[in-house]
Amino acid sequence: MVQGTRHIALIAGLLFAASGFAQVPAGAPAGTTGMCKDGTYSSAATKKGACRGHKGVQTWYSAGSTAAAAAVPSVAPTPVAPPAAVPAPTPAAAAPAAPAAGTAMTRKPAVAYTPPANAAPGGGPGLVWVNKTSKAYHCPTDKWYGKTKNGAYMSEADAKAAGYHADHGKTCGA
């Protein structure tokens, strides 16, 4: 019987190795599914995007690799209780482990750009500010009037003739 168990363990190990997934290192946090190229661990469920912002995936262990490794029997057989005596797993036990502290990958919050306090000199009645980068023009009542980096003042008619469009479709003239 011991010889048959060894064969099963050997076959299971070979099948696992042939699956293309690496084994989770011993020092990895619980729930680790991959290692990023910068040396951090990921606990993402899928490989896609798992190491975004960490130079990509170096080694993928897969979500099931730790469970598969645990399922491989040891060389020495252990007694097993009959199936009726095994309690059903609780939902808390079936939930994946949370990543260890310091391994969570977070994205930096987006910072909204606010216009400078002072408008460029030279504006006045009947003039709009054209943003040469976005090809939009801004009215004197707009918060971006005279405040974008690459722009100039001109009449609204000249701005339209030059191919500029009203910001958010708001024209300045009546």
Rank of each mutant, 00 (worst) to 15 (best):
A70P: 00
P89S: 08
A94L: 15
T46K: 12
K160C: 06
A50H: 11
T66P: 06
L127T: 07
C51W: 07
C139D: 14
I8N: 01
A97K: 03
N131E: 06
T133A: 04
P29H: 02
A152Q: 10
A162I: 06
K143E: 11
S65R: 11
P125V: 03
G122L: 02
S42H: 09
S134H: 05
G169T: 02
Y41T: 08
G34M: 04
I11H: 12
A110E: 11
W129P: 02
H168Q: 09
N150C: 03
V72S: 01
A93N: 01
K147E: 12
P77E: 00
D158K: 09
I11W: 10
H168V: 11
V111M: 10
S65I: 10
G53V: 02
Y137Q: 02
E156L: 06
H7Y: 10
V130W: 02
P116C: 09
T90G: 04
N131C: 13
V24R: 07
K170R: 09
C36W: 05
E156C: 04
A22H: 06
D142Y: 10
A93F: 08
A119T: 04
A17P: 09
S42N: 08
A161K: 14
G39M: 11
D158A: 14
G122V: 02
A93T: 07
G169S: 01
Y145K: 09
I11C: 07
P29W: 01
H165I: 12
A69T: 12
T40R: 09
G64S: 14
W144M: 15
N150I: 13
Y145E: 13
T90M: 01
A81T: 14
T32I: 02
A81D: 13
A50D: 09
C139Q: 07
M154A: 09
P29N: 03
V86C: 00
T66Q: 14
N118Y: 05
Y41Q: 04
G124Q: 00
T171V: 14
G39D: 13
A101F: 00
V130Y: 01
A120S: 13
A100T: 07
P82L: 06
C36K: 04
G4V: 12
A92F: 05
K48Q: 14
P121W: 00
S134K: 07
Y153C: 05
A88C: 00
H168M: 10
A94C: 06
D158G: 00
A104L: 12
A22D: 10
P115M: 15
T148N: 10
T5V: 10
P91E: 08
M105N: 14
A100D: 08
A120L: 03
G64I: 11
G173P: 07
Q58S: 12
P73Q: 01
K47D: 07
G126N: 07
V57E: 02
D142E: 15
R52N: 13
A26E: 13
P89W: 09
A100P: 03
P99F: 06
A119Q: 10
Y145D: 12
K135T: 12
W129M: 03
A71L: 05
V130H: 03
P82E: 08
P99L: 02
C51T: 04
P116A: 08
T40A: 06
A18M: 15
